[in-house]
């Protein structure tokens, strides 16, 4: 499987993502420069975290119009796998590849810390190997991560089983106290209806290296590979 990690000028988690895919999971990875118009025959596209074009206006608002995103949007519409983490999730929402929006955290502050999330479905490439309801310790680092959508969209997300992760406590219970940013229904990650586009605010790539003392994110990344091999 060939992975492509998109690099916007303000991306800053691109190297972290490449490190996990290449050094830890031993996959074929290329970086895709934002000014390019080709996805280099990649099978799986990742939009990493960061501040795509500075994001002074609104996270991801400008990235949506970049040359590479035109290719990513076309690729996704044809059923190609696209996974956005943090800023990548914001860009996918801005690009209308995913429903909803990511608003300023309730307390108005940037927040970086370990939180717990649980998989809500195993019917996606991203969660295929995860046990539903089991708490995973995965860090967040964002100022605009409060997932919001109107009632009808939320209903659709539930009915189609599109919520892939929710914030929970260390026991896996979905409680208000475990919600770090005010997201509706503790939503931490979703997929589109066709289940080929995924976004999540927590950073699984930051929880993959045993040197850092937490490999809970590795399950997410390995799910992708297991799904392909199965």
């Amino acid at each position: 499987m060939k992975f492509g990690v998109v690099v916007f000028p303000g991306s800053n988690c691109d190297d972290d993502m490449v490190y996990v895919l290449k050094e830890i999971l031993k996959q074929d990875v290329v970086k895709l420069w934002h000014k390019e118009h080709t996805l280099q025959n990649c099978d799986f596209i990742v939009l990493p975290g960061g501040f795509s074009y500075g994001d002074y206006l609104r996270s991801g608002a400008i990235a949506r119009f970049s040359p590479i995103m035109q290719e990513v949007i076309e690729f996704a519409n044809k059923g190609g796998f696209v996974f956005g983490v943090c800023n990548g999730f914001q860009i996918l929402c801005e690009s209308h590849l995913l429903p909803g929006a990511l608003l300023r955290n309730t307390d108005g502050k940037f927040s970086c810390k370990n939180v717990f999330v649980r998989a809500e479905t195993d019917e996606t490439i991203l969660t295929s190997s995860l046990r539903i309801g089991k708490a995973l310790k995965i860090p967040i680092a964002h100022g605009e991560g409060r997932f919001y959508a109107d009632e009808k969209t939320m209903l659709n997300l539930r009915q189609n089983n599109q919520v892939i992760f929710r914030y929970c406590n260390s026991e896996g219970h979905i409680v208000d106290d475990a919600n770090p940013n005010g997201s509706l229904e503790n939503v931490a990650g979703i997929c589109n209806e066709k289940r080929n586009v995924f976004g999540m605010m927590p950073h699984p790539e930051r929880a993959c290296d045993a040197n850092l003392g937490n490999t809970d994110g590795l399950g997410v990344m390995k799910s992708i590979l297991n799904y392909v091999e199965a």
């Binding site: 988690c13 940037f110 970086c112 680092a141």
Partner: peptide, 14 residues
């Protein structure tokens, strides 16, 4: 907590 302490995936103290 307002500082990103984990970007770069090198912070072994987290």
């Amino acid at each position: 907590n307002q500082y990103d302490s984990m970007v770069g995936t090198v912070n072994m103290s987290t």
